[in-house]
Design a protein around this nucleic acid. Structure first.
Length: 562
DNA sequence: CTAGGGTTAG
């Protein structure tokens, strides 16, 4: 028998399933020597490679290893798992199963089709590895949301003789970005990159910019960006989303205008990021102009863009326009339903958000399966409307959808209890959940302890935060507040002393100012949520995009060292 | 002689 165990596993799996029996027979047919000729494969689209392959099969020609590589590549691009695995069977039959090029293509093909287990099997079955095969599996894991595994394989690679190249670093850096807890990796990997001389590779820079921006290290982001000589559209998009992500919408808009002026092609990625920035700045006028641009470029059915439009309109206080955009969407999917619920929750209409959710899960005809993000939105909606019991119910409901609560949903649960004043139950969740509480969670909890004057729990939360955020004065100040309110003046004195001893400065929130028409407007950088649009952005809203770029020289934004 | 891996968006 020519088949290895591996292909037999596949084959039997197919024959057991009546719907896949035809595929099974096809595999058998291929393995008996059917083949293909690829006509003019080099100037055709992946889909026409696939067609050529299937046609060529009928001509009984045995494909060369080069042709097999090309066709596997096309299967990867078109996510054609069926054909890809059939070709795999043929490869085993012909005996190319230890060819490095073919195996790397196989790993890539399976990974791109989401069959990461099969990709791992191929990878583990390889006798020798090189840079490409390592990178294929690392990027495959990263793209399939298994950042942790990608990083651990990277570490394994470092212990071999094979030195990672710039392709590998791009994948590893983006895995780190997706894994929240490993923000410390940024500098380390950056150092690797410099040492190996990849610091001017545009892919590496884009992924590093993304990584630093997600960790809030904007100084590094700007440094990298400014060192770039050629700024292509992806780099600019990474930069725009970095600015948006770090509440620097102003900078994001400026860059977008510059990009538009210099005729750098505006992609759907750029539009999504810039809509985010408009939402964060609550500049409705600019948001509307981007909406016009979306319509003009025909991107008005792209899920990411629609989601961003809904978000932008709701942040700008225009919930009706948000729901109008949603209504005009032809294919409403999970992401968009969730965006719409989130829009209602953000606009203080939590009950409307819950109404949508209840409707969706009731209606059997609508294709909707709630995921983690969706439950976060539902729980947030409960929180904003003060619905403790309902929130706890929804939390319990997650399990009926086979969803194990993640840290975000636990954070919502803690918030629900704490805001209602049930601090003991909230505290219990910290112990019961399978995660370590992070700074955001403890900060929320601490604020609630202050609200309800609970010294004991407040003290515990503050001490946790001293460890988690050693530079932040906020927990010191809140704890001092709690103790002051309880008349514990000795402890207040001690807290002040601790602050001095630990070198924590009282003022860390930066201040910025914007100058428009000779008037100076001042606002805090850290948190813009309390800034009312009519206070500061009134003047900005009057400006059109074109005018903004003309005026940009006047907007000297400075962050003072307080 | 020909072949394989990478970045940005909820």
């Amino acid at each position: 028998m020519l088949y290895s165990n591996w292909s037999l596993n596949h084959f039997t799996a197919y024959t057991r399933n009546p719907q896949l029996r035809r595929t099974a027979l096809f595999i058998l047919g291929l393995s008996r020597g059917l083949s293909f000729t690829a006509h003019n494969v080099f100037d055709k689209s992946p889909q026409s490679h696939v067609t050529a392959f299937v046609q060529g099969n009928r001509l009984n020609k045995i494909p060369t290893k080069f042709e097999l590589c090309t066709i596997l590549n096309s299967c990867a691009k078109t996510q054609n798992f069926r054909l890809g695995s059939q070709i795999h069977a043929q490869i085993l039959d012909i005996g190319f199963d230890q060819n490095l090029y073919i195996n790397s293509s196989l790993v890539n093909m399976y990974a791109k089709c989401g069959a990461i287990v099969d990709a791992m099997k191929v990878f583990n079955g390889m006798e020798f590895h090189d840079q490409v095969s390592w990178t294929s599996i690392i990027s495959g894991l990263s793209q399939n949301g298994q950042g942790k595994e990608a990083i651990s394989l990277f570490k394994k690679m470092l212990r071999t003789q094979i030195i990672p190249n710039c392709f590998t670093y791009v994948s590893v850096i983006s895995s780190c970005t997706k894994q929240e807890s490993v923000s410390k990796c940024s500098e380390l990997l950056h150092a690797h990159v410099i040492k190996l001389g990849h610091e001017s590779n545009k892919f590496v820079i884009s992924s590093l910019i993304d990584n630093y921006s997600k960790c809030g290290k904007m100084d590094k982001v700007v440094m990298l960006f400014e060192a770039c000589i050629i700024k292509d559209s992806i780099l600019l998009n990474s930069m725009i989303s970095a600015y948006s992500h770090n509440l620097l919408g102003e900078e994001a808009l400026k860059l977008f205008i510059k990009m538009h002026k210099e005729n750098v092609s505006v992609s759907e990625h750029s539009l999504t990021s810039i809509l985010d920035a408009c939402g964060a700045l609550t500049v409705l006028q600019q948001g509307k102009q981007i909406h016009a641009l979306v319509t003009k470029t025909g991107s008005n059915q792209n899920t990411f863009i629609i989601g961003a439009l809904i978000n932008m309109y709701s942040k700008c206080g225009n919930i009706d326009e948000a729901s109008h955009v949603f209504d005009q969407t032809v294919h409403k999917n999970n992401i968009l339903w969730t965006s719409m619920m989130s829009a209602y929750a953000q606009s203080g209409r939590g009950l409307d958000a819950l109404k949508i959710f209840d409707h969706l899960v009731m209606e059997k005809e609508i294709d909707f399966t709630p995921d983690h993000v969706c439950f976060t939105v539902v729980l947030t909606a409960c929180n904003h409307s003060g619905l403790l019991e309902k929130g706890v119910d929804y939390f319990e409901k997650m399990r009926s959808y086979n969803l194990a609560p993640e840290i975000d949903q636990y954070a919502c649960l803690i918030d629900l209890y704490a805001r209602k004043g049930d601090l003991e139950s909230a505290r219990k969740v910290f112990d019961e959940m399978p995660f370590e509480g992070n700074a955001v969670m403890w900060s929320c909890f601490l604020s609630c302890c202050k609200e309800y004057g609970n010294v004991e729990l407040g003290r515990e939360a503050a001490y946790k935060l001293f460890e988690l955020e050693p530079c932040s004065p906020v927990p010191y100040l809140i704890l001092a507040d709690i103790c002051g309110a309880a008349g514990l003046w000795n402890e207040v004195g001690n807290i002040r002393k601790m602050m001095r001893e630990n070198g924590v400065r009282k003022c860390v929130v930066g201040w910025s100012w914007v100058e428009v028409d000779n008037e100076v407007h001042v606002f805090s950088v850290g948190d813009l949520s309390h800034v009312r649009s009519d206070d500061i952005y009134l003047e900005l809203e009057k400006l059109s995009l074109e005018m903004m770029s003309e005026c940009s020289k006047q907007y000297n934004i400075l962050i003072s060292e307080s």
